[in-house]
Write a protein that binds this DNA or RNA. Structure first.
Lengths: 186, 186
DNA sequence: ACCTGAACACCGTTCAAGT
DNA sequence: ACCTGAACACCGTTCAAGT
């Protein structure tokens, strides 16, 4: 007993994420991850649990990768900045990003992200009976766009066009959010 | 030679779709489909090609499943009806539906669906320099919502709440489309 | 023309065994 | 405590062979 570990959870997730970035999510197999770490597949189970748990770990990593908006931004501006940061994460991690559209907001980190959106909506003046719904619709529109983009639905269009589409989406969200406010914050 | 075929493409796709509906997309394996047809996996290759081609076939089936809107609806009303029909298809075929967010509009059927959306936008008065972009944003918002719903992102919310969210989305799309018209059609 | 058997290179996962 | 070997039940796909 007391054998020094040759791998750890962080290293396994690093390797799995790198593999996903390079070759897509389907390249993330227990064997491929293990082989890159110089270990057999069975060694991974102690550190990350099974395959599903490994994917959960990657989603957690994804959320950690999202840059927080500068704290002097609030309301619609903050919302737009968060959407841009989310898109940057999507572009850095195309393979893993689509998993976000699948999971309910359940982990502490995901709940924290949602709380930021809710706060921005409240500052923008969204009626309190509407914040939940608005948060879901705004998040869905932004996630839907980024997932479409990174998973290739727009691959027949030049990047320039897609960038302009995203700018317009942000513009619409900003406008939507401010049009629906009951009263200015101060 | 001249042996009578025991299976055909349509039957293979029927079986694959049924399997996806019952147990999700990951249950659609060549072996499972074949076994349900009373045949070995290798028999499928002649009729549907490989696994990727089989999935393409399922996506085609999905588009065929979408009800066309009543022909006396035009503009925003038509758009809303198409979105509702798309959602119904998503609910009938939860397993396969998310593939739509992955694929570019390339098949004849998919191009036909897009043309309907474009036409509805034009009738609603969307400026011709904006129809392409608007079509992409509207489709993305609707697909993003339905994929979220059928793949479980909203599973912590009661159906009633999700239905209300969708109604609001349609309302916003209808309003958005008519606010941005340059001139009434007649 | 259509289907199969055998074969290959993969998957995820378990469990007892080695150090 | 940590890793492995052997084993199991799966994957998708090919190719020559049977009818």
């Amino acid at each position: 007993m007391g054998r020094p570990p040759r791998i750890d959870r962080a290293g396994v997730l690093d390797t799995a994420m790198a593999l996903a970035d390079e070759s897509g999510l389907e390249a993330v197999t227990m064997q491929a991850v293990a082989s890159r770490l110089g270990v057999t597949p069975m060694a991974l189970y102690r550190h990350v649990g099974d395959k599903a748990a490994l994917l959960d770990g990657l989603v957690e990593r994804l959320l950690l990768d999202v840059d927080s908006p500068s704290p002097d931004l609030t309301g619609p501006r903050q919302l737009m900045e968060m959407a841009r940061a989310l898109r940057a994460t999507g572009q850095r991690h195309r393979g893993v990003f689509p998993l976000l559209l699948t999971r309910p907001v359940a982990t502490p980190l995901a709940m924290q992200v949602r709380a930021s959106v809710v706060e921005a909506l409240e500052v923008a003046g969204t009626g309190s009976d509407r914040v939940g719904q608005t948060e879901r619709l705004v998040s869905t529109a932004v996630l839907g766009f980024i997932v479409s983009e990174v998973s290739g639905r727009f691959r027949n269009h030049p990047r320039q066009v897609i960038d302009a589409d995203f700018d317009r989406l942000l513009e619409l969200l900003g406008g939507f959010v401010t049009h629906h406010q009951d009263r200015q914050p101060d």
